[in-house]
């Protein structure tokens, strides 16, 4: 095993180009466990800790460019307003110690269906900034990023530099089921974002299909129902039957398995419950904000 310590992003890309099998390591959450337990012996470890700009973020007009190694703790503390769904998701990641070191780049690189950030990214809308020495930068839409169980759209010579996450234009929520009240891997997870500007709702489901997925049928149904009922404008409470059908469609969007963490049947059920609750929470928040702005006006 060789330990590569690039001092800059350019050096890192060059190293990855030269050694496409090199395994990037930043927070170490996944990679070190695999090494400690003898599950993986990469030829090269590519340390990204020395590249300072990976831990930086910029808040732009439309989106936040979030460095791949910005620790979850920083996201929770500093980006709650811009990226509320991701901030909530970050708060559910493992332990304080791991949140201090791990970042979204690791979740994306591993692309485990259980990664906590994925549902929030899917719901918010995001693009992954990947780069290679040979072909430069490309932005991969989050919807195209997850390609299989622990597989993603990266090329062997590419590294994740950042993720561009759409700034929240409405309330977002994130919910995760685990069999412990802290430090737990998701049995399943659900992210939901209201996008009042486009009058759409986006979702993300974790750990209930081979990859993180959106519940597209549920989104389409809800978008239509909200439009039809004039909900965006009248700010009415979403009718229980609409919420129920949305929840059922979210359950239907799952393709889960039975494993030691939970049954497929439970996962479908729980995703439905989380879908209904997060919809209620976000919609209540949307209505509250509308009332507040009307009150001010």
């Amino acid at each position: 095993m060789d330990f590569l310590r690039p001092a800059s992003w350019e050096e890192a890309l060059a190293a990855k180009a030269e050694h496409p099998t090199a395994v990037p390591i930043a927070g170490g959450t996944d990679v070190m466990v695999e090494i400690n337990f003898d599950h993986r012996r990469p030829e090269y470890l590519l340390d990204l800790n020395r590249i300072g700009d990976l831990t930086e973020w910029e808040v732009g007009e439309e989106s936040v460019r979030l460095g791949a190694s910005v620790p979850y703790t920083r996201i929770m503390e500093n980006l709650r307003a811009e990226l509320p769904g991701l901030a909530l998701a970050s708060h559910t990641v493992a332990s304080p110690q791991i949140r201090n070191r791990g970042g979204v780049g690791g979740n994306l690189g591993t692309a485990s269906p259980a990664g906590d950030a994925h549902p929030a990214l899917l719901a918010a809308g995001a693009e992954v900034e990947a780069e290679s020495a040979a072909r430069g930068t490309r932005l991969i839409p989050i919807d195209d990023f997850y390609t299989g169980v622990k597989r993603n759209a990266l090329q062997p010579d590419e590294l994740i530099r950042a993720v561009h996450v759409k700034k929240a234009d409405g309330p977002q929520q994130y919910s995760k089921v685990g069999t412990r009240n802290a430090m737990v891997i998701a049995v399943c997870a659900f992210g939901l974002a209201l996008h009042p500007e486009t009058r759409t709702v986006r979702t993300g489901i974790g750990s209930a299909a081979p990859t993180p997925v959106r519940a597209k049928a549920a989104e389409e149904f809800l978008n239509a129902a909200l439009e039809e009922g004039g909900f965006w404008d009248n700010g009415k409470i979403i009718t229980p039957s609409v919420a129920k059908q949305f929840a059922e469609l979210c359950s239907g969007g799952c393709n889960p398995i039975d494993d030691v963490r939970g049954t497929a049947s439970y996962r479908r059920h729980a995703v439905g419950v989380m879908a209904r609750r997060t919809l209620t929470w976000t919609w209540e928040s949307y209505r509250g904000a509308r009332r507040a702005s009307e009150g001010a006006a």
């Binding site: 330990f3 927070g27 170490g28 070190m32 466990v33 340390d47 304080p96 201090n100 070191r101």
Partner: peptide, 9 residues
């Protein structure tokens, strides 16, 4: 920063 030293290479 508090971290798990088992996860730091």
């Amino acid at each position: 920063v508090p971290v798990c030293s088992c996860l730091v290479a």
